[in-house]
């Protein structure tokens, strides 16, 4: 446990001193500023616009953190062989994967806390400038719940990024595969629903079966999206919260197990 903490700590510290991290956070702050200006242009659905923009900024910044920062950090270990200095110590490959994920996830978690607070401030300011009487019913607890699930979806993406790095060892290829997984994961549920509800295809058609299979392999990232419910002040079913959290944690667990499986067979 001590060793897991040590590698996670140096990964975290190395990331924290990286200038790119502050560039990404600065960009997010600018976007939150834009949220206030942008929402001011609306005369109705202010809450929806402010919440949508605020949560999307967190998602966008988190994805940039994963694609251009975390993947870079992970593949540098393989390409520049920094990994030799870790694995030549009494640290196993399993510990390395868990440490790496823990260290990078801590960066994502802290960024999400900072961005979540900034987003809340930008939403509050946007609403306050228009007057609280003009907004739809809005619950802050649901807003922070949406931020929490946004973070969980980023942690799922982080686990997938780690898996792709372990499979390919190559930064660009891993980023490309991760991006592909993200787009499929975001849209799979919608496409499947459209095809099934409109009876566009025979339920026994091969393409429907392939879609069913793909929906089990790719992460259903739209399940973590509570933006619409929060923006419209809708109730969120507690069982859905629990199932979604379990789904996210299980998906991360599977990705980490697969990463360990591939990493153990990898020639470094």
């Amino acid at each position: 446990m001590d060793k897991i903490y040590l590698v996670a700590w140096i990964t975290f510290k190395n990331c924290l001193r990286h200038k790119a991290l502050y560039g990404i956070l600065l960009m997010a702050l600018v976007l939150f500023g834009a949220n206030i200006i942008f929402t001011g242009m609306f005369s109705w659905d202010i809450t929806k616009a402010a919440v949508d923009f605020g949560l999307s900024t967190i998602a966008f910044s988190g994805l940039i953190l994963i694609f251009f920062f975390s993947i870079n950090m992970m593949s540098d270990d393989m390409e520049k062989k920094t990994i030799y200095l870790i694995l030549s110590r009494p640290i196993s490959k399993v510990q390395y994967i868990l440490c790496k994920y823990a260290g990078l996830s801590t960066v994502i978690l802290i960024s999400s806390i900072v961005l979540g607070c900034c987003s809340a401030i930008s939403v509050w300011l946007s609403i306050a400038m228009m007057g609280f009487d003009k907004v739809l019913p809005f619950t802050w607890s649901f807003f922070f719940l949406a931020v929490l699930f946004q973070t969980l979806s980023l942690l799922v993406m982080m686990a997938l990024a780690l898996l792709w790095v372990m499979i390919t060892s190559h930064q660009f290829t891993a980023a490309l595969l991760c991006l592909m997984t993200y787009f499929v994961g975001q849209n799979m549920e919608n496409v499947k629903n459209i095809v099934v509800s409109r009876k566009m295809l025979d339920p026994d058609a091969l393409s429907v079966k392939v879609m069913e299979l793909a929906s089990w392999i790719f992460p259903n990232l739209s399940a973590f999206n509570f933006k619409t419910a929060v923006a419209h002040g809708l109730e969120i079913n507690p069982s859905m919260i629990i199932y979604t959290a379990l789904y996210g944690v299980s998906y991360i667990g599977i990705c980490l197990c697969l990463s360990i499986f591939f990493f153990k067979r990898k020639e470094l």
Binding site: I10, T11, K13, N14, R17, K81, T82, R89, P90, I91
Partner: peptide, 26 residues
């Protein structure tokens, strides 16, 4: 062990790196 071209976590200091090496070796 010393690799052929040692690469480190460049945003750590030399002392932090050695502290990590020592701690992992108990």
């Amino acid at each position: 062990y010393l690799p052929e071209m040692p690469c480190f976590y460049e945003n750590l200091t030399g002392l932090e790196t050695l502290r990590f090496a020592g701690k992992t070796s108990q």
